[in-house]
């Protein structure tokens, strides 16, 4: 075992299967650390991490911050609302100013696809993509796959269904890359207005029939309807969406086998999924959140190991 094949985590696209398995191996160890009475290790105590969040986030930001603190790193947080960004400073200038204060790793969330890659080409720091527009959200995909593997033993040959707003979802694209690299079969299901045309190039099946797709799959990942991005009327109403593509208990009870349900959060209860389903034994939503910290610790550990002293 050597190192990750990459120096930054920009997207799952750039990782290979060995990288993903190495991340999972470390995540297992960190999960054990997180269950100790003292959940902290000193491994990154000589490193400083900046969380640059140009887009709002609760789960991902807290998860990254906890991962950094439990690895002993120093952490600085930045969010767009309270920064000089509103005074017109560019992304590179903001990042370089923060780096001038001796920061080793930048965790970036940005609304522009490719923002993390752009930054990695222009500043001298390790970059971790925490979501770039509708492009990739690699840590989410890794924690999703890790959670599935934990429940089902393996990802290989498993049938995974991604339901909903694939067009606007960075989670969907990263999940497709990650699951396929681990040998899963991936299908997406949603209204045709929310399924991007490029999917046929990614060897992904497309369906518009939710019941038939749920019957096909072992695991369903229910995406959030991004209400803030629905100004173009991709579907007539939330109520109609819920009727055609919402997952409810009646639908699950009609299936011939039990399936595993994931959701990246935040959940619109009653729209893409009903409350009783979220809280049922099929749902591993809270396992995903717990595993998120371990996955992020694993990534920070493996990337930091490559930083020259």
């Amino acid at each position: 075992m050597k190192h990750l094949s990459v120096n930054h985590l920009l997207g799952i696209k750039y990782l290979n299967k060995d990288d993903i398995n190495l991340i999972f191996h470390l995540a297992n160890s960190f999960k054990e650390v997180l269950n100790r009475p003292i959940k902290k290790v000193p491994t990154l105590r000589d490193l400083t991490v900046a969380n640059l969040f140009f887009e709002s986030s609760t789960r991902t930001r807290i998860s990254f911050e906890l991962a950094q603190k439990r690895l002993g790193a120093d952490v600085v947080n930045f969010s767009a609302g309270t920064s000089s960004l509103s005074k017109g400073e560019s992304l590179i200038d903001t990042a370089n100013n923060i780096l001038a204060m001796k920061v080793d790793v930048i965790v970036l969330r940005h609304s522009n696809p490719g923002a993390a890659e752009f930054l990695s080409n222009h500043v001298k720091s390790v970059i971790v993509n925490a979501g770039d527009g509708s492009h990739e959200h690699p840590t989410q995909a890794l924690l999703d796959a890790f959670s599935i593997r934990e429940k089902l033993g393996s990802i290989k040959n498993k049938k995974v269904l991604i339901i909903g707003d694939v067009k606007h979802s960075r989670v969907a694209l990263s999940n497709i890359f990650c699951l396929q690299k681990l040998g899963a079969k991936v299908r997406v299901c949603g209204p045709s207005t929310l399924i991007p045309k490029y999917l046929n190039k990614l060897d992904v099946e497309v369906s518009h029939n939710l019941k038939e797709s749920l019957e096909w799959c072992d695991v369903a990942n229910i995406l959030r309807i991004q209400l803030e991005r629905q100004k173009n009327n991709f579907f007539p109403s939330n109520r109609e969406y819920a009727m055609l593509f919402g997952v409810n208990q009646e639908l699950l009870s009609s299936l011939s086998q039990d399936i595993l349900l994931l959701h990246p959060g935040p959940i619109n209860r009653g729209v893409e999924v009903t409350s009783d389903v979220v809280d049922s034994h099929n749902s591993i939503v809270l396992n995903q959140v717990e595993n998120g910290v371990a996955i992020r610790m694993a990534i920070l550990y493996l990337l930091a190991a490559k930083i020259k002293r």
Partner: peptide, 22 residues
């Protein structure tokens, strides 16, 4: 397993892969 408490992190050629703590 004491990997995360070692004093040679970032001082070795390979990344240190932990074993199981139980």
């Amino acid at each position: 397993d004491s990997t995360f408490f070692r004093d040679d992190f970032r001082r070795r050629e390979d990344v240190i892969i932990p074993n199981k703590t139980n």
